[in-house]
Amino acid sequence: MNSKVNGATPVLRVENLSHSFGEGQARVEALRGVSFEARAGEVTAIVGPSGCGKSTMLYLLGLLDQPDSGEIYLRGKPMTQADDSTRTALRNKSIGFVFQFHFLIKEFTARENVAMPLRKAGVLSDEALFQAEKFLKQLGLSDKAKRFANKLSGGEQQRVAIARALVNSPDLILADEPTGNLDAANSDRVFDVLLKFARDNGPAVILVTHNPELAKRCDRRLPMLDGKFVEE
């Protein structure tokens, strides 16, 4: 486990988080009392075999699911008991998701996809599109801004998805295998973008990956096995 940004403010604190699926005796314990912190500007890689609970934890941290027990603190505030509207508002303003598949809305252009979180946050259409184009430019996609999402290459789509996650300047970026579906060149490029944004803008980035090379480039690694963090 390495840590390069230990002095930074904790954006996220997780205490004894547990979660299970299924019913009765068929219940699977996906997380077993996980605790950790993520600091501003720090990129944390969660690594481990498939089914060890990495993605489950990501969805809990993204407030898309409720844990069985434990607590998640975002900027010091407990989240597990927060009502749905609070959690929804936080997902819009404080959390950015990047998934393995880009999950863009194909009926929209690249800039419209990126502008969506801004529109939800109440930014007027023209301003939101302007901001979206600015982000796409930073990601080298200024000439693709007005293309429909399904007319972009895989790497471009994933960069658009990253721009969408970053456009609201969130405190926390959750990336679930963001390069898992890309070739080596695109994978490096996408990862560079995430790292640069974290360094420049200071959100905490939590990254789930199978790629050991990418994990090594992160500020710290948290290996996970059977729903718990383990020593490397």
């Binding site: 898309l64 508002a89 819009n92 998701f97 969506m116 979180p117």
Partner: peptide
């Protein structure tokens, strides 16, 4: 369904 899930992850509420 998938688009709805993504919109929810972006902060769109059930009402939205």
């Amino acid at each position: 369904t998938r688009d709805v899930a993504i919109l929810r992850s972006m902060g769109f509420s059930p009402g939205d």
